[in-house]
Design a protein around this nucleic acid. Structure first.
Lengths: 192, 192
DNA sequence: ACGATACGAATGAACGTTCGTTTGCAAAGA
DNA sequence: TCTTTGCAAACGAACGTTCATTCGTATCGT
């Protein structure tokens, strides 16, 4: 059904997997070649450099999250619903494309300039738009009053474990985990 | 008046800083030497290998967290108080020794056997004891009912951003941030 | 007080290995 | 035929580490 994957896409996916497991720096082009049944030199028929692979991973995911943010902003929902939608986006993405997102989260610092600055700008933009939603929710009284940065980064990182966790195709259904995480974050550890 | 730091300690601290900024694999012994005003070869008068440095960082922090866990267990407090104490431990450690803890969190996978297995066992032990506390709290009705693993890992990773955040010596006081994070996690995003 | 001895600390040079990447050429597919 | 794909070989650079040596400063026997 899905259109056949190009060799470049196969290489990108294998690279994302290796970058997640061993890190960008500790992954050699010979490692990557072996993972796709090629020799290292052959890789360069499909990609132009090791960093290009990382670049694609980072910016593809950045755009994915920014697209999600745009949809949420257009929805016109209230702040709690918008936060729920964004948490859902983070959690679903973590489960559906864990390898790619992990590389995106942890390895972007190995980008070279000018891409490093470009990436940081995208990230900053996303964070600012998320912070706006949190501020709106605090102003309306829907959210507790607190430092919006503390709230923002706590939410961000609270779903980070999913990227590591779902590499082994865990038993729990994605929907159940998503629901539990969102309720935990919205309602807190305490019961009732 | 603190006793003078040995050169080995100076090297360890500089290494933790570099590992945090660039990652273990991307940090060369020549980078590290430059950071402590030595040549690469001179480092080996004080340490025996690059991995030994990482090993010390990882196991020192592992023991620090396990010691904290033992104190909490001995306290005999109820589950919510124990979780609060452990969150406080994570948050305070993140703020007081951010560089070392980041290396501990992100770079342990570069340990060689048998240390890798030993480290994983320590980590597993700590997680199991944390999970026991969460289960107790759920049984007593103090915590909401949910998958203890989802709860555990969400709590763990929700404080991860602090390690990255506090590298720039941020303005907020540590106590204020700690209080806000704990209330957010215990009570949730929603107000009241 | 004295020279002899030991030792911690630092160094430049070099080791073998691995790194990312380039080149030249052969085989395959269009 | 012309483009795409693959590979062996090789490249310079960087890697972690070892080595012989040096320098300064303690400690020692006398």
């Amino acid at each position: 059904m899905t259109t056949k994957k190009t060799k470049k896409e196969i290489i990108q996916e294998a690279a994302a997997h290796l970058f997640r497991d061993k890190g960008y720096s500790a992954t050699s082009m010979r490692d990557l070649a072996e993972a796709v049944n090629l020799k290292a030199s052959s890789l360069y028929n499909h990609i132009s450099s090791k960093e290009e692979i990382l670049r694609n991973i980072c910016f593809d995911n950045a755009h994915r999250f920014i697209s999600g943010m745009e949809e949420v902003e257009k929805s016109g929902a209230d702040a709690p619903a918008q936060v729920r939608a964004l948490l859902s986006l983070h959690i679903r993405t973590a489960m559906e494309d864990a390898t790619s997102v992990t590389a995106f989260n942890d390895e972007w610092r190995h980008l070279n300039e000018p891409y490093l600055s470009e990436f940081k700008a995208l990230r900053k933009d996303y964070e600012q738009r998320f912070r706006n939603i949190l501020n709106t929710g605090m102003k309306s009284g829907a959210f507790r009053q607190m430092d919006p940065n503390v709230m923002l980064y706590t939410l961000f990182s609270s779903v980070r474990w999913l990227y590591d966790w779902f590499q082994e195709g865990k038993s729990r259904s994605a929907e159940a985990v998503e629901a539990e995480v969102i309720e935990l974050l919205m309602g807190g550890l305490h019961s009732s």
